[in-house]
Design a protein around this nucleic acid. Structure first.
Length: 298
RNA sequence: GCGCCGGUCGGAUAGCGGCUAUUCCAGGGGACUGUAAAUCCCCGGCCUUAUGGGCACCGAAGGUUCGAGUCCUUCCCGGCGCA
């Protein structure tokens, strides 16, 4: 390996086989894995988030899995700090960090160093703003920061609220800045499409339900995670909650709903990753190995 | 055979004479500054020299009318009822 710091990113859609690929590559190249998954980061969401099992992990170290308190909101900003810290540690040990995940924003924050304004979420303000209509929010932002207002999605309440939150604290929303990693990065993408993806997703969801998605959801509720919070953990959990409440009649209906949502999600992931020209889309493990070999020698 | 009800974009729906035919779901495309598996936007008949333009269209054919998915006639198809 050359002296420069190197990092591999494996991005891709759900059920594409990222985790397995990551592990295989880690074994071959002396890597350690940093997860970039906004759900697996939480404790207690193993089944519904499709987290790798202990068996699969084998002897490859995995980081940023099950580290956050599910009762609290974990943010991209925290992720960025943790991920960068882990990378440094891995480099110090002379190993190769491999980021594996499907959460595009997390990868962008950690690798490209998207600079996120230092304004912590303000629950009180948010609660207040969430009562307002989109047009009211738009007006508020316009008064506080015309520049940001001009480019923001004026129909997206979440974005508007956040922008107002920042503008309230700093006076203005700072322009986007990047603080990229001082390392060479190889982006590898893996994806499945069409019927193939569909059948993989079906299998995966059926397995989740078989392995106790319902029990896991109940357990979260029992340990004091609010329903609202559980719903925010994504369609696996929100649909399961609906099943528990009887709004969804049967397990097969539950599976169908989750499968559908998963496929929609995969589409959104592709929208995100698809525009990143750095990603090299590989068809199989062998291709990945060839690319990485070249990357490490250079 | 008679009577009633109905046939609207892939499915379901609105529409009771007037301008660009509605909404939901499914489908497709896209955005992304501390919630991102979140949140949000656009398209949805055909053609196109595409932040625009052209041509269609409401089971079929005629008719009434300045104007018809909407009214009338006949036919076709489906459901229900009576024979």
């Amino acid at each position: 390996m050359s002296k420069n710091k190197k990092l591999i990113v494996i991005a891709g859609t759900t059920a594409s086989g990222k985790s397995a690929l990551g592990i295989a590559l880690a074994k071959k190249f002396g890597g350690e894995i940093i997860s970039a998954d906004s759900r697996q980061i939480y404790r207690g969401l193993k089944i519904g988030s499709g987290a790798v099992s202990k068996k699969e992990v084998s002897d490859i170290p995995h980081y940023l899995l099950s580290v956050a308190n599910p009762k609290k909101t974990f943010t991209v900003s925290q992720y960025k700090k943790l991920a960068r810290k882990k990378m440094e540690e891995i480099w110090k040990r002379n190993k190769l960090p491999i980021i594996v995940g499907g959460t595009g924003l997390y990868i962008r924050a950690a690798v490209d160093g998207l600079v996120i304004p230092e304004v912590k979420p303000n629950p009180k303000l948010r609660r207040e703003l969430e009562k307002k209509s989109v047009s009211e929010l738009s007006l508020i932002l316009k008064k506080k920061d015309v520049r940001r207002w001009r480019e923001i999605d004026k129909k997206n309440p979440r974005r508007l609220v956040r922008a107002i939150e920042i503008a309230t604290a700093l006076g203005k929303v700072p322009a986007i800045k990047m603080n990229p990693l001082a390392a060479e990065v190889l982006f590898i993408g893996i994806r499945k499409e069409g019927k193939m993806l569909e059948s993989l997703v079906k299998k995966r969801v059926a397995k989740m339900v078989r392995e106790g998605l319902v029990a896991e959801t109940k357990k979260l509720a029992k340990t004091g995670v609010s329903e609202r919070k559980i719903r925010e953990f994504g369609f696996e959990y929100s649909n399961t909650l609906a099943f528990i409440d009887g709004e969804i009649g049967s397990k097969s209906e539950l599976i169908d709903k989750i499968v559908k949502s998963t496929l929609d999600y995969a589409k959104r992931q592709m929208t995100w990753f698809g525009k990143d020209s750095r990603i090299i889309w590989i068809r199989n493990r062998q291709e990945a190995i060839i690319k990485i070999n070249k990357f490490l020698i250079l």
